[in-house]
């Protein structure tokens, strides 16, 4: 499937009310490891990555920082893609997830 098609599918899922684990955000190393562990040991489906990653269609403001894919270090600006190996998914600049890091 092309990036565009996967991105559209993800957007549909989120728009149609898919409940994702937006909180708690991955604030420290233990929380990061827990989420990464869940992702590594899941079925790898798009739906599961969106849920465990805590995806939203808008940036989440947390502890004074706006956490959008646009500023995340895993985001490829030109490809509009999340390169975190455990997520590995096309995204949009204004989306967000709880593994955001700058």
């Amino acid at each position: 499937m092309s990036d565009d098609a996967i991105r559209a599918e993800a957007e549909d899922l989120l728009k149609n009310g898919l409940q994702t684990d937006v909180f708690p955000r991955a604030d420290d190393q233990t929380q990061i490891q827990e989420i990464i562990y869940q992702l590594q040991n899941g079925d790898g489906s798009l739906k599961e990555r969106l849920v465990v990653g805590g995806f939203t269609l808008d940036p989440v403001s947390h502890e004074g920082l706006e956490q959008a894919c646009e500023t995340c270090m895993y985001y490829l600006v030109h490809r509009r893609y999340c390169e975190l190996p455990e997520l590995d998914v096309p995204v949009e600049a204004e989306w967000s997830c709880r593994l955001w890091r700058i």
């Binding site: 955000r25 420290d28 190393q29 947390h62 956490q67 270090m73 985001y75 890091r101 700058i102």
Partner: peptide
Amino acid sequence: QTVMGVPKDLPTGVDKTGYVKLTGAAKA
């Protein structure tokens, strides 16, 4: 290592606010 998504050890001489601003702009 990060704390609230920001690296715990920043490049020598750089503070958190400056880092966040600079990286956001550079990325764009």
